[in-house]
């Protein structure tokens, strides 16, 4: 959506469901990619490759993105992203969230999968509001 370039920022909070095999390690991979300065790239790759998110696949993605693989493996094996992920899980619980994806657009809650128009409507309304302020 080129028309929205510079006007929208996406902030990611991690909400891995406990009962899914690879949800947690995928979140760990995203946190480590972020710490190595490649968050956007890994985020997109994980969405594209899902549900192929087992440990070996994640390591292959880290290689593909030219991350420091040794550091990456250490991070996902030792769950070094736990501080961020546990904090986000706690936040999700406080917000009473139990489905993903869950969005907050300038603080307005949107739950579940919606079509692009639904988001566009809210985004354009928020941009109008921002102009008037």
């Amino acid at each position: 959506m080129k028309e929205l370039e510079g006007k929208v920022k996406l902030v990611v909070k991690f909400f891995p469901y406990r009962y899914r095999d690879h949800a947690r390690i995928a979140a760990e991979a995203a946190v480590e990619a972020w710490r190595q300065g490649k968050f956007a790239e890994m985020h997109e790759l994980l969405i594209k490759k899902s549900p192929k998110l087992d440990r070996e696949s994640l390591i292959a993605y880290a290689k593909e993105l030219n991350l420091n693989v040794e550091k990456f493996i250490k991070a996902i094996d030792n769950m070094e992203g736990a501080d961020i992920i546990e904090r986000d899980l706690k936040l999700a619980k406080e917000l009473d969230l139990y489905v993903t994806p869950a969005f907050f657009i300038n603080g307005i809650k949107v739950l579940g999968v919606r079509d692009a128009d639904y988001f566009k409507n809210i985004i354009f309304r928020e941009l109008e509001n921002a102009k008037q302020r």
């Binding site: 920022k9 909400f15 949800a23 995928a26 969405i47 993903t100 969005f103 907050f104």
Partner: peptide, 12 residues
Amino acid sequence: APVTIIEFIDYQ
């Protein structure tokens, strides 16, 4: 950016 979207995501 004037609009912030927060996404709670599960990659799997």
